[in-house]
Amino acid sequence: MKMRNFAVIGLGRFGAAIARFLEEEGGEVLAIDSNPEIVRELEHDYTSVVEADATDIEILSNLGVGDVDAAIVSIGTNMEAGIMITLLLKELKVPLIIAKVRSKLHEKVLKKVGVNLVVYPEEDAAHHLAKKLYWPGYSELEMTAGLSLLEISAPKSFVGRTVSKLKLREKYNINVVAIKRKNPIIDENNQTDYEEKIIAPPKAEEKFETGDRIVFVCPDEKVDKFKDMK
């Protein structure tokens, strides 16, 4: 079932951004911060933003935090407050608690008190940027449990050959989930442009064309294989 109701506690840069994205995606977001200035600044950006002390279980309960599908604790500097809030969220039986952490120790402690998932926003962003710089043309969409979902331009050697002929699964241990193909058009103003068509999943007999981008899943350790592929 799709998650709909969220609480975001701590509205610094990360918390405010995630609250905004969740709301833009159609979620019901209860955004909480104890700093009145931050709340004042953000109150026009979200439907529901409140100034409250999230370390008080009664306040959390009255706000309806016990009914959310997931809570995101985005308190980076005050570790104690983060621990306290997590314990209260646990007590309120919030099914999924996600916390922003700053160190391995922070992660360990929060997981011990019941956080289900931790994120390192700065580290994740740095990792993502480093990969982009190291492998120009690669764009990493998501990573989970040792698997990467990657998008690359189809190597020249693929052009004119079919998905099955290339034996990508056998040779490289990758699964192609989609091909993004640019179809050239001349628009109503007699101007060249293109439309992107997504072929997902591609059939075995689908031939790669110049300009195709391939979206595929592969184990992290195999990602390197694509670095020099032309």
Partner: peptide, 14 residues
């Protein structure tokens, strides 16, 4: 120039 740019982009010469 725009047509040239689109041709480069469509052929993945980013």
């Amino acid at each position: 120039l725009y047509s040239l740019a689109v041709s480069y982009e469509t052929s993945s010469d980013y």
